[in-house]
Design a protein around this nucleic acid. Sequence first.
RNA 1: GCCUGGCUAGCUCAAUGGAAGAGCAUCUGUCUUACAAACAGAGGACGGCAGUUCGAUUCUGUCGCCGGGUACCA
Length: 886
Amino acid sequence: MRPVPFRPRQASQPRMRRLKPTYEPHDIESRWYDRWQSSGAFRPEINPDGEPFSIVIPPPNVTGVLHTGHALNMSMQDAIIRRKRMQGYAALWVPGTDHAGIATQNVVERELAAEGLTRHDLGREAFIEQVWQWKASSGDRIAEQVRRLGFSPDWSRERFTLDDVLSAAVREVFVTLYDEGLIYRGTRIINWCPKDHTALSDIEVDHHERPGELVFITYPFTDGPLDDGTEGVVVATTRVETMLGDTGVAVHPDDERYTSVVGKTVRLPIMERDIPIVEDEGVDPDFGTGAVKVTPAHDPLDYEIGQRHGLEPVIVIGEDGSITEAGGPFAGYDRFDARIAVKRRLEEEGRIVAVEQHMHSVGVCSRCKSVVEPLISTQWFVKVGPLVGPAIDVVKNDISRFIPKRWEKQYFHWMENLRDWCISRQLWWGHRIPAWYCDACGETVVAREEPAACPSCDGRLRAEEDVLDTWFSSALWPFSTLGWPEQTEDLAKFYPTNTMVTGFDIIYFWVARMLKMGLHFMHDRPFDDIVIHGLVRDAEGKKMSKSTGNAMDPLELANRYGADALRLTLLQSAVPGHDIPLNEEWIDASRRFGNKLWNALRFAVEHSEVRGVPESAGYPSNPHPEAAWILSRLHEVASEVDELYEEYRFADAATALYNFAWSEVFDWYIEMAKLGLRSDDQAAETRQTLGVVLRDLLKLFHPIIPFLTEELWSELGDGSLLITASWPDPPKFEAPAAIGELQELVTAIRRFRAEHNLGRRTIEAQLETAGDEVPAWWLAQLESLGGIAVTATVTTPPPGLTRISGGSVALHVALGDLIDVVAERQRIEKAIAEAEELVAGSLRKLANSNFVERAPAAVVAQERDRVEQQESRIAELRTQLERLPA
RNA sequence: GCCUGGCUAGCUCAAUGGAAGAGCAUCUGUCUUACAAACAGAGGACGGCAGUUCGAUUCUGUCGCCGGGUACCA
């Protein structure tokens, strides 16, 4: 019944290196990357017999540096791949970068502009050469950042979208689709960026709500006013300048206001052109006046109306965004200046009937934010219709799964409303479209290799100048990176890939297109799970961007707090599909967790001689209660965390590990272990338990905080690398009930001490039990953890003492004048009142026959238990109250 | 307009059809020999209304506010 006597530790062995007293992330994070890489751990060949598991990285643009979004994206992938590697899979993570057509070209053009040059001053070849140089340095920088953050892709399989192999894949796909009639060249209305001077696909246009003017203009009838005096038709427009190119006016066929004028012509002001009034279903009779001016050359709907009614497009806005010769008196005006000038001219002519303020959405170039101009232009298109069906089915049939699932709806909605994809870009940086034109006979040749001469007339061929949309090559990424069109071993082994981790912002740009291309060319989905994460935002929830100055640099954060702290913070916040705010305080909290983990290991290794733990060390076979308890928790947490990892619920996994480590292993078990370590018959087992628990904790945490766990494993372990250690599967243990009671009682004591300002002095107490034998270890822990020296064990409450109860046991303490009796009385009365309220609530529930009959039996039983518990608690509290000195 | 996410503690975010958690912040104690970057405690919250249910913070509807996506809003 006495605590285990304290025994001084043996003098410690001299050792190679001591852990520093504080965790210095920068120090250890510079140490491991090269060792990991040179060990071959990043390559799937490290597990030659393992089942394949593969991820391809969403390739960052070579335009610059990684941002926190990349850090999140890659932290998730790294966590996945590291765990799979430890599980024994032949785990492959393919790294790479994207040439990012417009974006990269813009960056280099800006550099040139600083020297007063344009790309045309250099010429195509010299310019591209310059971009390649820029790419080389930028690509290196990105790789350096990836390494700094500890990500573990297989660098030997690194790819770039303009690599020879990938370029071959692009040509193969282009030619095949062309031969299948799924790629064609056509003249249509497209989105044009006047600043970047290129066509854009529909999704490269962002829509912004902006205030504008809705101007109502009268177009007079050619033949003069009607009998009722009506002078003409009033049309409404937000883009006044486009009236210069009007070739018709359209009304809805059912719109009775206009039935009498359909077929007449009106005279277009300024241009003095007679244009017909036509009927078209596409007109919304409720908007404006119900009559639409038709500008086929500069509006997608007008283009269609024009096509249906044979209205010729008149191009009045050119590729540079200024008014063309066809714009008569306004030729040469910038389009926005023209809007003002044309309106003024119409006012002078008395044609404007009204002007309303109007919110409307304006299409802007997603890269440069210029207002996009719809233009008629000859471009290359992918006919997406035939590709869509399989890409929808594969998701509908759950073969490829969006996580979270709600993105599927967005995906279907978009896929079902697709228009043909404009893939040609008037840029220099990118994959050149493999097409050649014969000016002699008009033949178009599409081929994998450049043909020597025109196959029809043997004439000279002129190569297509345009390049492909950057997303064209990205769409092939899951199979092109594995060597396709060659039937490589990698392709056979690793396609389809298992998981795609990416942001919701590129579901349309990228994920949808990978599905379409993968299914068309590989006849199989490109990936099983599509894990969609949110945007990383700043502490206030605002989108991070360079222009608002709230962007956080992951490298800087890693240098300040450690890559591990950054990764832990990101993953701890990565609730599937939700944006995450990145708060520096959180990163600091993660770093402090690192410090805590560091010190826990320092305790084990330096103070307790727990070291040289074999990677595959077994668990104690017949553990003491404390050990059995922590091992039971280890089993539960490991199973839970394993499942959470499998479901990509990193936030829950990280939080579960964090809480287990800190609140259970560190706060309770290490404290309990201090006794065991000092006791002759328990020391070995305690060391073994500490060793395996900490080892498994390091393993479970390794996918999230690889550097720190590897460093600590090098102190605790057997010299092996943690990165290739086996994934833990700790066996089940029964947790002794006595541990729960101990914890409850200790907590009660601590609360009592805090409430009464009793400090840390040891308190003598009598222990009240139901008569069971109280084991010595229990009393020893009670003294060690609670500062309670048990002087006697009783079965009935001794008189005149204060009772502290926790669970089914209670202590009786002679506190006498140590405590403030009045305050204590109030405290107990308050506790009684609270308990009575709870009981009343439960009793109300139990009095309800509906509840008793319909609620699950377990819930009802639980409710009854509560009443019992609370009532016995109230009885205890009353006893306490009675015992207090008056 | 249509689709979609959110509204929980002072702040930023979780979980949950059966007495709501964390980090930071606040308050009270403590330098207990792994850790004061720590320890032991305390206080503090489910946007409004209606419905379904024995029971709703959780499911449904509706309203309000904030955020995304999307549209041929001339």
